[in-house]
């Protein structure tokens, strides 16, 4: 972990070599983000609610998912872009270090411009919370924190799965984007508004529903069963097989030429 944070520092140092470029990408990220944001706002100027979810409930959901995604893009960029690591042969170097492979890969590349998105996601969450009428209790606070952590974990798991796929073939990665980017776009809305098949898929195959749907129901008071508050914990279990699959993949690793 110490090595991870130290390499984070070095990435920052590298970045400061190119200040202007950093500032422009940082700002451009704001534009991208707000185009998503305004889509949702525009939707709600025509409809009061989507299947019973109000604007700010959806925004909370959106904020949490964006938070998880941006967190991984910022601080685990190496896993997100694992195909690059393999193609350029940098993964060889990782295997030569006496440290945890996944942490090393995560720290191999960082994208601090994406921190901009992370901040924006937090702002959206705050806006949603201010406008929602939440009956706060300690358990509700825990629920919210669990949702945010689970959002980080779920995307990390999926990035790991996508990375494992690189061991089989370094091409055809667009397939996995369906589940990361595509999944992210769907999960910005409470999963419950979609058809049953989707709900099933995003509950059992990729557990987005445990991040932003079941706990959300408890959080906004639609359901009072406290089990729902702890449902994000299932996402942690989901991480385990993803890690195992990744290590299986390493055994299949064949390198990228000399």
């Amino acid at each position: 972990m110490k090595v991870y944070f130290k390499s984070l520092g070095l990435h920052l140092k590298s970045l400061l070599e190119y200040k202007a470029s950093f500032i422009t990408t940082f700002l451009s990220q704001i534009l991208v983000f707000f185009s998503y944001y305004f889509t949702i706002l525009a939707l709600f100027t025509r409809f009061d609610n989507i299947k019973g979810f109000t604007l700010y409930e959806v925004l909370l959901c959106f904020g949490v998912i964006q938070f998880g995604f941006a967190f991984n893009e910022s601080f685990a960029r190496g896993i997100d872009r694992f195909d690059k690591l393999i193609i350029h042969g940098e993964f060889d170097r990782i295997l030569l270090r006496p440290k945890n492979i996944i942490l090393q890969a995560a720290g191999y590349d960082e994208d601090f411009a994406k921190v901009s998105r992370l901040l924006q996601a937090i702002i959206v969450i705050v806006i949603a919370l201010v406008n929602l009428d939440i009956a706060w209790s300690p358990l509700k606070l825990i629920t919210l924190l669990l949702m945010m952590v689970a959002a980080v974990i779920v995307f990390f798991s999926i990035f790991l799965l996508a990375a494992s796929y690189c061991f089989i073939t370094v091409q055809g990665l667009e397939v996995t984007n369906v589940f990361t980017d595509g999944g992210k776009h769907m999960a910005q809305y409470p999963i419950g508004i979609f058809k049953k098949g989707f709900v099933w898929f995003f509950t059992f195959i990729i557990p987005y529903a445990f991040v932003n749907y079941y706990p959300l129901l408890y959080f906004i008071g639609k359901i009072n069963n406290p089990i729902y508050a702890f449902s994000p914990l299932l996402v942690f279990l989901y991480l385990i097989p993803c890690i195992l699959i990744f290590y299986r993949g390493i055994k299949k690793y064949t390198g990228a030429g000399s």
Binding site: L96, Y253, T254, G257
Partner: peptide, 12 residues
């Protein structure tokens, strides 16, 4: 290179 990579633990 393949031999070197096996010897250095990169490849199985």
């Amino acid at each position: 290179s393949t031999t070197i990579k096996i010897l250095s633990g990169i490849l199985t």
